[in-house]
Amino acid sequence: MTDELLVVRAQLGERAALAELVARWRMPVWTYVRRMLDAERADDVTQEIWLAVIRGLPRLREPARFAPWLFTIARRSVTDRLRGQYAREHEHAHEALAADDVIVDDPVDAAVDRAELVSLLSGLPMPEREILVLFYLQDLSVEDCAQICEIPAGTVKSRLNRARRLLRAHLEEKGYRP
């Protein structure tokens, strides 16, 4: 059953569809939250996110766009918890992006598998970490990432480039050569 059908059935008031939707998206949401927050806060925030999702679900106008909507809510909850840290790192990243706003294909795409990516993420600044999680771990498109993070698609690409460069630097520090 597609996500859209599950969402529509949940919006009609079918509890089984809602339960299946939660079961299907529980891990992706938790993975995103856990990559952004420590284990202590991840479970609480995940629960908060699901409460907000359930309360907002009847008003979701485009059931086909459930995933970006879900991660928009998740991001809001995470940034609420990280407000200070996120703002500082966002500022820093913005300055860095202005200097290297060129979009390039990067072989690090192929080199970094998910498990390695996960272990390296904690060393990245918040805006880059967030984009990597959404793009690589959640397989969301650049457009969806842009909608979730409320930034232009071009900024998503620039941020991905910078994140890849930072990842490559981390990998090389650890002696990894693609």
């Binding site: 509890r15 079961a23 529980r26 856990r34 479970d43 995940t46 629960q47 359930i54 996960v118």
Partner: peptide, 21 residues
């Protein structure tokens, strides 16, 4: 990465129960 959420899907739904009551 083998870390898992503390709440199972069933437990999570149970926690959401008050909003759905």
């Amino acid at each position: 990465m083998t870390e898992e959420p503390r709440l199972s899907a069933r437990e999570l739904i149970e926690r959401l129960e008050p909003a759905l009551s």
